[in-house]
Design a protein around this nucleic acid. Structure first.
Lengths: 149, 149
DNA sequence: CTTGACGTTGACGTAAACGTAAAGCAATAC
DNA sequence: GTATTGCTTTACGTTTACGTCAACGTCAAG
């Protein structure tokens, strides 16, 4: 998996100007704008659309992005940082805005949620282990360094 | 990134027989054995060797795997579950068994450790956020379900 | 001694996640 | 006007992480 650097920013830097406008007119964005803000290329954004992860409005041939699309993009990028493949991310996102259905539907969704959580908790264990080992390793490095200085 | 399922097992199931043998004669393993135990194919194991992540002993043309190789394989698989690309995993593993060098070397290693930790901590934040949202989402599902039942 | 189970080295195939180049509209800038 | 800028689609290229033969060596069992 092509994993992204964790230094990525998934929120735009300058929100001050945006926020005022958001309240006033329900701002929209062009593909270049959200691509830049989320530190990805427009090609990447379109790729996510091809996979059905985002579905921006179309004004003629031009794509118009709403707040909803930004939320989704943030979810996608976080999923990527967590190492999930895009297809899996899609099923997760689809869960999020599935309309409140019948009981059987909800049961299904709850099952999916449980799978997801099991998965995430495994990752958390891996992560804690890695951090613990890293700390231990750093400690050894420092004592070695002290011995030299 | 092609990320693996978190249901993977990265430790052999039957350790009882192994442990006794380990103490006695420093057991070794064949490629098929560790592949089976770690739930990967032998092709995968060889792929990791091609990338320099594992370097098993060679008896003639046959590969002999020691405990050291098993440790590395476990590290690799955990790295994969965390979403790291193999090349990056290699640099991490290389850090782990770098011989205790000079001060400048150690400084470098400490720098690397710090990068790695920053990265992991970002992932941890993402993970906690995801789990929190998942819990909240589950709660909403359950209340919807109660309303129906 | 040949059959089969496992080992080996290539070499080519593939799926995911984009990159990149080509070529075309459409509006604004000069 | 035309030139630039920005959006669009189509389409082929690339990297990662293996899968999948093919073709061969080797050792124990029948």
């Amino acid at each position: 998996m092509p994993a992204p650097a964790a230094t990525e920013v998934d929120r735009p830097a300058d929100r001050t100007a945006d926020e005022a406008a958001d309240q006033a007119v329900a701002r929209t964005w062009t593909i270049r704008e959200i691509a830049d803000e989320f530190r990805v290329t427009h090609r990447t954004v379109r790729h996510y659309e091809e996979l059905g992860l985002i579905t921006p409005e179309r004004r003629g041939t031009t794509r118009i992005y709403h707040r909803r699309d930004r939320t989704r993009l943030a979810l996608i990028l976080r999923g990527k940082r967590l190492g999930f493949p895009l297809e899996e991310i899609r099923t997760i996102i689809d869960l999020y805005d599935r309309p409140r259905g019948k009981a059987s539907q909800l049961e299904y969704v709850l099952g999916q949620i449980d799978e997801r959580r099991t998965d995430l908790e495994q990752r958390r264990r891996d992560l804690e282990d890695a951090l613990t080992e890293l700390a231990e390793f750093e400690r050894r490095c420092r004592t070695d360094l002290d011995r030299l200085g």
